[in-house]
Write a protein that binds this DNA or RNA. Structure first.
Lengths: 233, 233
DNA sequence: TGACGCATACTAGTATACAAGTATTCAAGT
DNA sequence: ACTTGAATACTTGTATACTAGTATGCGTCA
């Protein structure tokens, strides 16, 4: 019989090798593991000090998310960045976030406003200190905040899953260029419109903001061709 | 070394117990497996004549999709329909499909038009013959066609993944009510606006069409309370 | 009669062993 | 020099054995 939902799930036991999942995902995201690189189950298993079984489950999930490619009886490889997937991710993210920021501008409360201002301040601090990793997280947190304020917190999970490929590009960008200052200004614009309750301008600014990736994709795919999938013959 | 992409992937071997995945997914979707029902790995394994290993991978994926709930050391159960997940799915689907049908209306070619008309005819035939399963598939096919015509074929995969919870409600509806005739008319309206190239009306009609589920959700959650998650205390 | 404690059965998590397929290497033959 | 073939190493797929935690049932005790 399924457990009653009145339980207070007190430490219902640690999940599993969830750490391994996070580690691999991050290493692929940041480019530590490069596309095309071979990552055999056995190697990962002994490196993590566990057996192949949990490693397999992690790899299956990463394969579902498009981070790795599993070829039966051949091997497991870090998946290349597929430009078509990047464009599709951008489309979905833009569609969803343009609608949610509109709702956010209409549903804003005073507490929400404080959160947005605090996030913006934190971004400026990270930028000042040159902590790009922290900035990366704060960027995500701001976008997540908009979705939450819109009253659809669960949507952020979907967006995060979809923008996986986008994040790989984003990391390449952070390493090779210095556009964070521009991003902070755009974030400030977004927050400003939301605080003003101007849904129309907030949506327009979000659309423009999310489309800045287009400018970098083309350049990055030339600078790091080995990170991207070879175009069809 | 990763294989070259010039290969013609001649029957690169059957995937695996992918059949089991489809079977379980369908049985949960159609209500053959009822929410709360216990589905131990061992039972599924011996029923399918395989070992626990592939069964586990299937269950992990179903858990990621929200179809089953795995409680460590306790059991695996068919997940209840979460109303909040249904509403979130509806929001995402509406947001994406309203934008794509707008694009479809603008990008329509003559070949696309023929596909839409043929699908509509097939729906009417299925309705006449009372084949609700075929109608179910044709419904999906029409929506997929809009997405494809919009030039974003891959988006349909995401929509399908998101609307998993919606489909469970949809199946309950098909069994307990007779609203297919109304749906066919709505589909005809959608197709009509797209054929006319009227993006505005097509989007409005799509929004109204997708929101028809709201009318049934409330009723269904009362008629089949055992299919839905108990609200928080 | 009720509550408590313990033994038992059952579950998923993990590790390991085995099977099946692929890529690579190298040697033999043309 | 090149092709071809088989042997070998290596990979993932699958099955099985074992571990650890949970729920259940029964017996005991107050």
């Amino acid at each position: 019989m399924p457990p009653v939902s009145t339980e207070l799930r007190l430490h219902r036991r640690a999940p599993i090798g969830r750490e391994l999942y996070g580690m691999l995902r991050r290493q692929i995201l940041t480019g530590v593991l490069r596309p095309g690189e071979s990552i055999p189950e056995t190697t990962l298993a002994e490196r993590a000090g566990v057996s192949r079984t949990p490693v397999r489950e992690v790899l299956r999930r990463l394969a579902d998310e498009g981070f790795v490619t599993i070829i039966p009886q051949v091997g497991t490889y870090v998946a290349p960045i597929r430009l078509s997937a990047v464009y599709d991710s951008q489309f979905i993210r833009e569609t969803l976030e343009c609608r949610t920021i509109r709702l956010a501008a209409e549903n804003l409360t005073e507490a929400d406003a404080a959160v947005l201002r605090a996030n913006l301040a934190a971004q400026r601090a990270s930028l000042e200190a040159g902590e790009s990793d922290a900035f990366f997280d704060q960027d995500d947190a701001l976008h997540a905040a908009f979705v939450r304020i819109a009253g659809r917190p669960a949507i952020w999970e979907v967006i995060q899953g979809v923008k996986a490929q986008l994040d790989r590009v984003r990391y390449l960008s952070l390493q090779s260029g210095d556009w964070p200052p521009m991003l902070v200004e755009e974030h400030a614009t977004l927050v400003g419109h939301v605080l003003a309750g101007d849904a129309g301008r907030a949506e327009a600014a979000m659309r423009a903001h999310l489309r800045t990736v287009f400018a970098t994709i083309e350049r990055l795919s030339r600078v790091n061709p080995d990170f991207f999938e070879k175009p069809a013959p």
